[in-house]
């Protein structure tokens, strides 16, 4: 069962990335009459139409194309010229590489922020009056409970056009501000949104971890004259290290598949992510077809990317395990 549900889709994606399925077309002369404001107009023209089988399905033909779909996604010739010209602009003008650039920056930048914010909230909550803990935990968890797309949209509406926060900023700075007009402001909003959304998860995990810190060790540290910072640095954080690795793994996997932000902030004109690229290939265009092969290739590349990213923390864990 496990094999069926996990491996089969992966195999099928891999297979599709090496094959292309095309409908078989024929040229037919068709008379089309369409309404207009001033009456119908008819034209007879040669149209390209798919051939239908007896069962009424479009007849398709599948061929092995090797790495062609990967080449279509990666555009290696353009990449080579960009590298040869040492041009960052040419590099980011290739859709895949610009998506990879954003995805990596997004993943790497939000990681420490999520970990740091999560730990700060956890420490703060841990130190509040016990009576207040329940409500504070509940409120801190809210951003994580909100559906990602809805959360992104909520933030977008605060800023788009004359949204209240943009209007507030404009009033405060006495300056016309358009948050959705350039890439960097949109990217900034996406980073802030992701940290806002995911930090509660890091908080819950760290908070649980804080409950298991050995009180004797802490007390011993206090007697030894360790400051609050030293206790954090030498007792608490080492204790929480396995959780940091766990959160890092989860966050790398999650953030590398960034998608909701692109939709929610309509950022596709300025920045796109790898997941968005796959989605774009999968969208039906006016022909009713999807670029399944390129979408599959892009999906496989995303999987490879995640695997490479995870390799770094995983290797560390493996070494530690072996060391102990």
């Amino acid at each position: 069962m496990m094999f069926l549900f996990i491996a089969a889709p992966l195999v099928s994606v891999l297979w599709q990335s090496f094959h292309v399925t095309k409908p078989i077309y024929e040229q037919v002369e068709v008379e089309t009459c369409v309404p207009g404001l001033l009456g119908s107009s008819c034209v007879i023209e040669l149209k390209t139409r798919p051939i239908l089988s007896d069962a009424g399905k479009i007849i398709t033909n599948t061929t092995y194309v090797g790495l062609q779909s990967y080449r279509n996604v990666l555009q290696p010739e353009k990449l080579r010229t960009a590298i040869k010209n040492r041009s960052w602009r040419e590099f980011t003008n290739i859709r895949f590489w610009s998506a990879l650039r954003f995805t990596l920056v997004f993943t790497v930048l939000t990681l420490p922020l999520v970990l740091g914010t999560g730990l700060l909230i956890a420490l703060a909550v841990n130190n509040t009056v016990p009576r207040l803990k329940g409500p504070v935990i509940f409120v801190s968890l809210l951003p994580f409970i909100v559906t990602p797309v809805i959360g992104a949209l909520a933030i977008r509406w605060l800023f788009i056009g004359d949204g209240i926060l943009t209007a507030g900023l404009e009033w405060w700075l006495q300056k016309d501000i358009a948050m959705f007009a350039q890439a960097w402001t949109i990217e900034l909003m996406m980073y802030i949104y992701r940290v806002w959304h995911v930090a509660p998860f890091a908080f819950v995990v760290f908070y649980a971890g804080l409950q298991t810190v050995n009180q004797d060790t802490l007390e011993a540290a206090i007697i030894d004259g360790a400051s609050r910072w030293q206790r954090l640095r030498y007792v608490i954080i080492p204790h929480l290290m396995p959780l940091v690795v766990f959160l890092t793994l989860i966050h790398l996997m999650d953030a590398y598949r960034v998608f909701e932000e692109i939709v929610g902030f309509s950022s596709s004109a300025h920045v796109i992510s790898l997941q968005w690229l796959t989605y774009e290939f999968l969208l039906q265009d006016g022909t009713g077809a999807r670029a399944i092969s390129r979408a599959s290739a892009s999906a496989v590349l995303t999987m490879i990317g995640i695997a490479v990213l995870l390799a770094i923390p995983l290797r560390r864990v493996w070494r530690e395990q072996r060391g102990s």
């Binding site: 390209t48 596709s268 300025h270 006016g286 022909t287």
Partner: peptide
């Protein structure tokens, strides 16, 4: 003119849709 009723313009419309923004933002 009527908007064309054919498949090629569908594919072209898609290519334009993902390719034009880079010009508008000044990237290309």
């Amino acid at each position: 003119p009527n908007y064309p009723m054919n498949k090629y313009i569908g594919s072209m419309h898609g290519a334009l849709g993902s390719g034009l923004a880079a010009f508008m933002t000044g990237d290309k």
